[in-house]
Computed example of a mutant assay.
Amino acid sequence: MNDAPLKVFIIAGEVSGDNLGGALLSGLSDLKTLEVQGIGGDAILAAGLDKSLFPMDELSIMGIAEVLPKIPHMLKRIKQTVLAIEAFNPDVVLSIDAPDFCFRVQKLLRKRGVVSPKQIHYGAPTVWAWRAGRAKKISKFLDGIICLFPFEPPYFEAHGLKAVAAGHPVVESGALEADGVKGRGDIPLKYNQVIGLLLGSRGGELKYTAPALCETVKILQAKYPDLQVQVPTLPRLEARVKAILDAHGIKNVHIHTDKTKKWDVFASCQVALAVSGTVGLELCMTKTPHIIAYRTSALTYQILRHIIKTPFAHLGNIILNRALIPEFIQNECQLQEMAQVADALLCDDQLVNDMRSGFFEIAKAVGAGAKDTPAQIAARFVTETN
């Protein structure tokens, strides 16, 4: 280890970014002694940050109605952060996710030119899905970008920005070692048909997509009365999710809110019905056959369909560039069709085996089985980028 201290200013704006940052700092500490300042939560604090410049939660704001009243305060926080970086004069500034805040800090820092640290961002914006022009814009104020997926670096390298695909942190989460037997919990062994129902966490998901998924389960339970339903969710959403399930008459429900058992619960399901999102990739890691669905308002969908460029919604399908996992988006989110595909996954072993073979390819593409962990690859990129 080189004992010359590496001065790092780190910025995370939400829990997922905090987790990435904590793992990255741990990886860096294996290569260098560190001096750390910045903005972070529990994971980054545990990994070496003594005190957050201000509470990370201030950056976790979503939606126009929430953002607009806070614009003056956010502008003040951006300036405060840049001044703190200039006073610290770090070797590297690491921003993670939260692009609305982080990119403004990085851009202003580069524009002012008071200090000249390496400027690196972790968690590439989805330029492959929409607003591809962002890649060129951020290349003007960043020195490097750490991507999660193997198809992302070329979008940035085309504009002269150094990029690396480090892999997805889910491969370090324990998902690959999920135990479905443990995940059954109190479900008696005599019930051999278990389905997962993942309704999402955002208001729009619970409003538009959750009802369709619930009605699909209801169709399946009419055919299989003993079908058990595993419902992982967040503690804060338990009451709302239960109300949704009750309203749709879903029986044999097992709600889980313990995040330490999440992967085992996933793995206990013969098939899962999930709202489109990162959860789809997580289900691939636990080898759980599944379908995804997504509905939103008609206006929002019309806007999205004109700006999103990728032919797939599921990250696994995007990685493979083929339709391995069935997708039911907006007008295609039809109950009978979803029930038919889910039923096939319950009964057709060959269909399940084919899907799981694809899961193996997806897991390998995001870093499973690699010599180095995503955090180690990211840390090496930080130290080697000029």
Rank of each mutant, 00 (worst) to 15 (best):
residue 228 Q to T: 08
residue 72 P to T: 02
residue 143 D to K: 13
residue 131 R to Q: 09
residue 22 G to A: 01
residue 363 A to M: 09
residue 175 A to E: 05
residue 10 I to K: 07
residue 184 R to Y: 01
residue 289 P to N: 02
residue 307 I to G: 00
residue 340 Q to S: 13
residue 228 Q to Y: 08
residue 52 S to A: 04
residue 221 Q to V: 15
residue 235 P to A: 10
residue 349 D to L: 12
residue 40 G to Y: 00
residue 93 V to Y: 06
residue 62 M to R: 09
residue 82 V to H: 00
residue 8 V to L: 04
residue 92 V to M: 00
residue 386 N to V: 12
residue 149 F to S: 08
residue 26 S to L: 12
residue 260 T to A: 06
residue 234 L to D: 08
residue 302 Q to A: 10
residue 234 L to F: 00
residue 373 T to K: 10
residue 13 G to S: 08
residue 351 L to P: 12
residue 374 P to E: 03
residue 168 H to V: 06
residue 359 F to Q: 01
residue 56 M to K: 08
residue 44 I to S: 02
residue 12 A to Y: 11
residue 273 L to S: 04
residue 79 K to I: 13
residue 233 T to M: 09
residue 318 I to W: 00
residue 333 C to D: 03
residue 384 E to W: 02
residue 222 A to R: 09
residue 265 V to E: 08
residue 162 K to P: 14
residue 4 A to R: 15
residue 366 V to M: 01
residue 302 Q to F: 09
residue 158 A to G: 07
residue 173 S to A: 03
residue 164 V to M: 05
residue 8 V to S: 03
residue 383 T to D: 07
residue 368 A to P: 05
residue 203 G to C: 04
residue 164 V to C: 01
residue 309 K to R: 15
residue 42 D to G: 06
residue 306 H to M: 03
residue 130 W to F: 13
residue 363 A to W: 10
residue 225 P to T: 01
residue 256 H to Q: 05
residue 47 A to E: 04
residue 244 I to Y: 14
residue 288 T to G: 00
residue 151 F to Q: 00
residue 386 N to C: 11
residue 369 G to E: 11
residue 383 T to K: 01
residue 155 Y to H: 09
residue 47 A to G: 06
residue 142 L to D: 06
residue 118 K to D: 10
residue 212 A to I: 15
residue 269 C to Q: 05
residue 248 H to K: 13
residue 275 V to R: 02
residue 362 I to M: 08
residue 257 T to P: 01
residue 111 K to P: 12
residue 165 A to I: 06
residue 200 G to Q: 11
residue 236 R to E: 06
residue 244 I to C: 13
residue 64 I to V: 12
residue 57 D to H: 14
residue 322 R to L: 05
residue 92 V to K: 00
residue 275 V to K: 04
residue 337 E to C: 01
residue 289 P to S: 02
residue 180 G to D: 07
residue 2 N to A: 03
residue 278 T to N: 03
residue 165 A to S: 09
residue 11 I to K: 13
residue 354 D to S: 13
residue 199 L to M: 11
residue 195 I to Q: 11
residue 318 I to V: 07
residue 246 D to R: 07
residue 84 A to Y: 05
residue 320 L to Q: 03
residue 215 E to H: 07
residue 156 F to S: 11
residue 132 A to D: 15
residue 8 V to R: 05
residue 225 P to F: 04
residue 109 L to E: 15
residue 329 I to L: 14
residue 172 E to Q: 14
residue 370 A to F: 10
residue 303 I to Q: 02
residue 82 V to W: 01
residue 7 K to M: 09
